[in-house]
Design a protein around this nucleic acid. Structure first.
Lengths: 200, 200
DNA sequence: ACCTGAACACCGTTCAAGT
DNA sequence: ACCTGAACACCGTTCAAGT
């Protein structure tokens, strides 16, 4: 019996992966540590060898999500290295697409950190870096006279907040059907960006 | 014994009130049906006489939150009946203040509806009405040439999304300290509104 | 109609024990 | 070091029973 007594090499990452899968199949409400353990093929207490509690696993899943988002933003910035406006347009498009494609991971990314902020340094660091990419795009746009001058950090909060707000309202089903029947979330975000950008 | 065998007149509202109190004292994580029942002075199964499940109680709490927010928006609209710009400024200020004053109720208002959208008609109705107030303000601002012309509903989604996004990021601790050390959330929202409003 | 108390399945977490 | 299994407290939900 017992083909493999223990799990294979890397249970920690297997648990994160299992968590992401459960999230995409059953949603936030279906995410339990015991289910994650079962899906990874270990006992319900095995995760505690790698995560001190459930919050820590959630922080790891969120960190993974921010890593992916950060990579996508980096790709957009590299692809349009000489075109700040396209960086802004395609960056926001990537953000919206990420939220749509990973609804529940996205929701968890923005609802877990709060509890104990500084306890998950990897999470804090990657979310800081992701924000820094937004600031980079904003600075490039300001240099190209595409965004108003002024504090790039404050402008980045405004841009990010605008995109994040519309996406969040859409994910929570708060946007009126009379609007959503006519415009996709991507369209709404595009309209919003056109309001912020100079010269239309 | 048994000074009052049952609860007094209105257990349903007592449960909602107890839920709001727990929310403000222990946060979203501390909200359980059993604690709500205990705080209202009834057995853990008594709530099921008034709410089919926990989601329903949460929907009722959220509905109550939207009612309060709606009332505050109405008060602002009435107070500045002839001044659309002040309606916009004070309306957003009221929204931000509500979120800050009732952090956890605010969070629950925008994280519960999703599951089963049409199952809570009172919730859908009051959130629809609240959005309608935003549309009213937008229309008044457009007539006064304070906001760009175009679909008032789409513009309302942009305005609401901008405010909601910055507030949400702030509540989740996602706004960089280098920004928050210098500007309050109210300030950031004000800056954002100035970008959307015509003539600065 | 409104509420209680026992019961069930599920959960997060701890801990002694195994390899 | 990494994992198991029993145990505990807590939870949402159901249901027979009481008034």
């Amino acid at each position: 019996m017992s083909p493999k007594k223990y799990h294979h090499g890397d249970l920690k990452n297997a648990l994160i992966k299992a968590g992401v899968e459960i999230l995409s199949k059953e949603g936030v409400g279906g995410l339990s540590l015991r289910k994650v353990a079962q899906r990874a093929g270990v006992s319900h207490s095995a995760p505690y060898a790698h995560f001190p509690d459930k919050q820590s696993l959630i922080a790891a899943i969120s960190t993974e999500g921010f890593n992916q988002l950060h990579n996508e933003l980096n790709a957009v910035i590299a692809k349009y290295a000489n075109d700040p406006k396209q960086q802004l347009v395609e960056g926001t498009r990537a953000y919206v697409q990420f939220a749509i494609d990973h609804k529940d991971t996205f929701k968890i990314m923005f609802s877990s950190a709060l509890e104990k902020e500084k306890e998950y340094p990897a999470f804090v660091e990657i979310s800081r870096q992701t924000f820094a990419r937004v600031v980079d795009i904003v600075k490039a746009c300001q240099s190209a006279k595409i965004l108003k001058p002024g504090s790039p950090e404050v402008t980045a909060v405004i841009v990010w907040g605008q995109v994040h707000g519309i996406v969040s309202l859409a994910l929570e089903g708060q946007i009126s059907h009379t609007v959503l029947d006519q415009h996709s979330v991507q369209d709404l975000v595009t309209f919003a960006m056109e309001q912020l950008v100079l010269y239309g």
